[in-house]
């Protein structure tokens, strides 16, 4: 029973949503929209589970005085204060502290983490340079052509580079992306089918 009912739910929900794609009737559209809204609402309940997990892992770290435990205190302080500011009925997400935490903590941290990509992409390019295989060389040459074409400082280095870059984007790039996407489409459909038919059920747990 513990496994049969969930598998039946998966099958019914899966078949229903697959069939819904072919039914243009307004009733079918309503159901689709409801299901989408339901999923978002369930996600919020699940977020509570996430927060619980975060609290549990952090408090365990503190209790056991595990390595780097003081930082778990920082994490909990940020978490609890933001929950109090955001949900503590002191103006909620419009409160002064909530907005300032967002603007002066989250935004700079987000932007800086994102900007780290500039360094990582440089080190990744260096790594590609070091690779001696023929395929890595092809990758590198193609990358160089595109980098020269789209660099904002020099502009396209000659007409040949501009032509070559646009040819790479329009021919091999298009072909390869299409081949990958067709494969992905098939892989996704196969996985979805395995899930609906109950062939793939590892996510259902053990007992």
């Amino acid at each position: 029973m513990k496994k049969e009912i969930p598998l039946a739910i998966v099958f019914v929900a899966g078949v229903f949503m697959a069939v819904q794609f072919f039914v243009p009737h307004a009733g079918s559209e309503w159901i689709y929209e409801f299901v989408m809204e339901w999923t978002i609402i369930i996600g919020i309940f699940a977020l509570a589970l996430g927060i619980w997990s975060l609290l549990r892992v952090s408090t365990t770290k503190i209790k056991r005085k595990m390595e780097n435990w003081p930082y778990a205190v920082v994490l909990l302080a940020g978490l609890v204060s933001m929950i109090i500011f955001g949900m503590g009925f002191m103006g909620g997400v419009e409160s002064y502290m909530f907005r300032h935490f967002f603007n002066h903590v989250m935004i700079p941290l987000h932007a800086t983490m994102f900007s780290l990509l500039a360094f990582f992409i440089a080190s990744a390019a260096f790594r590609a340079f070091k690779a001696r295989s023929a395929l890595a060389t092809v990758l590198l040459i193609s990358a160089l052509v595109l980098m020269l074409r789209f660099n904002p400082y020099l502009g396209p280095v000659g007409d040949l580079d501009a032509d070559l870059a646009s040819w790479i984007l329009n021919v091999p790039n298009l072909a390869a992306k299409r081949a990958i996407i067709i494969g992905i489409g098939l892989g996704m459909v196969a996985t979805a089918l395995k899930v609906i038919l109950g062939i793939e059920r590892s996510y259902m747990g053990s007992d």
């Binding site: 992409i121 990758l139 193609s142 990358a143 052509v145 789209f150 870059a165 790479i168 091999p172 790039n173």
Partner: peptide, 8 residues
Amino acid sequence: VTFGASFG
């Protein structure tokens, strides 16, 4: 070639 292009 595509991966290189995407990277560049």
